[in-house]
């Protein structure tokens, strides 16, 4: 018995030793695989080109997030078709493992989704879960433009066709200008320039009469442009734009508040089935908003920090719903414009 017991003990010892050895060998990878998310770099997909507003703000956030999460962020850019390329690629060609995130220019990309009938579903395939901020949509002219005010711009558009540079037709700015034209009987002609830089350049050089884009872009151009009006009243932004009035306050219109929100999105499957990833990311992203380093990051790139605000998945869900409805309402007019 004793012998048996002893034999068993040896066996047990051997087994335990083997098990302990194996555990020792594989423990780090087991730990990494099971609990310690994230344990490798996180890939960020952006559905616009390099050097744009999305990249600039995303990097501000990831520069802070990297210290909290302890991993780096890698970027890939897939512009095209108003965001469709980046979204479809993200939805169907990137692993649904929590190591792939989408940083989104929410409004224009949702408008594309609502007007183009692409292959992905929002929020069926991709869920926007953290709004990082919103910038009002503004109308601006080049510094040398003879147009000094919103009223003068609309008066001109009642006498002749006024050309408006826009990043692309599926954009909240395009909807805003169409709505203003309809409400005032003014003739605005939208010219898509395919990106913020050429759009601004068109207004600055006088190729078009004005441009419609985000306040962030207009403010970053400084004295090169003059902001005539805004589609959403945000006092902090207004102060940086010589207190440009809101379109609704000038004309008594009821155009919905228009802004361009940015935020983080992920695969819905990960959101629903990987709670540890969801919680870790949400906690870390939330924490960036109270980290003073974030403001420094924005100041370093001369981007306005005032529009930075956190919105959870409910806020994002409402943005998706409301923007989809707005886009569908203006889909025909965007097509006919």
């Amino acid at each position: 018995m004793t012998k048996k017991f002893g034999q068993m003990n040896r066996r047990l010892l051997l087994k335990t030793g083997a098990a302990a050895g194996a555990a020792g060998l594989f423990a780090p990878s087991l730990l990494r695989a099971q609990g310690a998310y994230p344990n490798r770099n996180i890939n960020v997909v952006i559905a616009t080109g390099q050097g744009g507003g999305a990249e600039t703000t995303a990097r501000c956030f990831t520069n802070v997030l990297r210290t909290d999460l302890g991993v780096d962020f890698e970027y890939e850019f897939h512009p095209g078709a108003g965001g469709q390329v980046g979204y479809e690629l993200y939805a169907f060609k990137r692993d649904r493992d929590g190591y792939n995130l989408l940083y989104s220019n929410m409004h224009p990309e949702i408008i594309t989704y609502a007007t183009q009938n692409p292959g992905y579903k929002l929020p069926g395939d991709i869920i926007h879960f953290a709004k990082t901020g919103g910038t009002p949509i503004v109308i601006y002219v080049g510094a040398n433009s003879p147009i000094q005010s919103l009223e003068q711009l609309v008066d001109e558009a009642k006498k002749r066709t006024v050309t408006v540079a826009t990043s692309r037709l599926p954009h909240p700015g395009s909807i805003g200008v169409l709505a203003l034209g309809e409400a005032q009987g003014a003739d605005f002609n939208l010219i898509p320039f395919g990106g913020g830089n050429p759009t601004s350049m068109a207004a600055i050089t006088g190729e078009t009469d004005c441009a419609v884009l985000t306040a962030g872009v207009a403010i970053s151009l400084g004295e090169q442009v003059r902001v005539l009006g805004t589609f959403r009243d945000v006092p902090e932004f207004n102060a940086m734009m010589n207190n440009a009035p809101t379109v609704n306050s000038v004309f008594g219109t009821t155009i919905p508040d228009l802004e361009l929100s940015q935020g983080w999105a992920m695969h819905t499957e990960v959101w629903e089935n990987m709670p540890e990833v969801r919680e870790r990311l949400v906690t870390a992203i939330k924490a960036t908003f109270t980290n003073p380093e974030l403001k420094k990051q924005f100041e370093a790139v001369n981007y306005p920090y005032d529009g930075i605000e956190y919105g959870d998945e409910t806020v994002c869900g409402e943005i998706v719903k409301n923007t989809t409805e707005l886009a569908q309402r203006y889909a025909d007019r965007l097509r006919d414009s």
Binding site: G49, Q50, G51, E55, T56, R59, N197, E299, A300, V301, N302
Partner: peptide, 11 residues
Amino acid sequence: AIMMVVLQYHG
């Protein structure tokens, strides 16, 4: 455009 990003990050 990429050089601009770098320069912006340097303030």
